[in-house]
Design a protein around this nucleic acid. Structure first.
Ligand code: SF4
Ligand code: SF4
Lengths: 152, 152
DNA sequence: CAATATCCGACTTCTTCGGTCCGGGTTTAG
DNA sequence: CTAAACCCGGACCGAAGAAGTCGGATATTG
């Protein structure tokens, strides 16, 4: 529940890896897979999705591979997750396809939609570049400011 | 991916329902289930978990049922989700049980742990009481302030 | 042309979730 | 006392989704 897909996880790893190697023109899926020890074929499919979404550029043939299509700080974690796992929804009532049938009687879907937006906002505020700043500077996670505003 | 369990969903609905009926001493699982049209037996098990976690008080026998053990504004959505679905982790590396085996080589688990904490903070800042404030006052969701601080 | 790479859909396997069933124990109304 | 109404909790099962695999087509370079 509320767990990130491993595919999205891999996708973030791969993008971070690409962001850290800007000098190379392109890296093949196998290169990245080997670097982390994740199944090559699976990673390939993930990168393909990211390519189709426009986050990556691919180049077939020898010495081919993938490269970021934009600057690392212009790619948000939200986009990555969205590309790989589809639309982002905390609840099952995706309003459109097939959600739970008790949507009309449900009284908590509006508040939850608010929460959904908040979390999406969090994800959108994180870029690939941020992942590369390997820092966890002693300062323990302090939740000071109000994080979500449910009622206006 | 990143989707709330339906059980947690039901749990929140039930708690909200209880919060909105403070006059009644106790409501049976069947009452709540009928009110929303969710499977009674399933809801029963959810309420049992919430009881075991101390969020609810149960009373067997005729005219028995469940009641909130604390004030509605003292119960956070985080507690509910935690009670029903177990520990809250965005990633698979739960450090302790069985996570993914590439935890050592993984370079994004610390940043993601930060994100995890942020989202957990969001959930903790929401009380059952907040769910009852049925408001969505025209004001579109505005994300003004920075929502997550990755680097200190 | 041959080697290397991406591309892409279909497929199997595994886990989890949603839901049901049943055999208990408790309390209270009659 | 007894039966109804309720809570308790494990076992069970089908459906769905996630993780990973396979195989073939296509594009590029040497
Ligand atoms: S309609 Fe209500 S119960 Fe159904 S998925 Fe949405 S929030 Fe959950
Ligand atoms: S170790 Fe890395 S890849 Fe594995 S679950 Fe944690 S974040 Fe994801």
């Amino acid at each position: 529940m509320l767990k990130l897909t491993k595919k999205a996880d891999y996708g973030l790893m791969a993008l971070k890896y690409l962001a850290e190697h800007p000098e190379t023109v392109a890296l093949s899926a196998k290169d990245i897979a080997d670097a982390y020890g994740i199944p090559a074929q699976l990673l390939a499919k993930i990168l393909q999705k990211l390519t189709k979404s426009g986050l990556l550029k691919s180049h077939a043939g020898m010495n081919g591979g993938y490269a970021l299509s934009r600057d690392a700080r212009e790619i948000s974690a939200y986009e990555v997750i969205h590309s790989i796992d589809g639309p982002f929804f905390i609840t099952s009532c995706t309003k459109g396809s097939k959600g739970c049938e008790l949507t009309p009687s449900c009284t908590i879907k509006e508040p939850l939609a608010r929460v959904n937006d908040t979390i999406a906002g969090v994800l959108k505020s994180i870029s690939i570049q941020d992942l590369s700043d390997h820092e966890h500077p002693a300062g323990p996670t302090e939740k000071s400011s109000p994080l979500v505003y449910l009622t206006h």
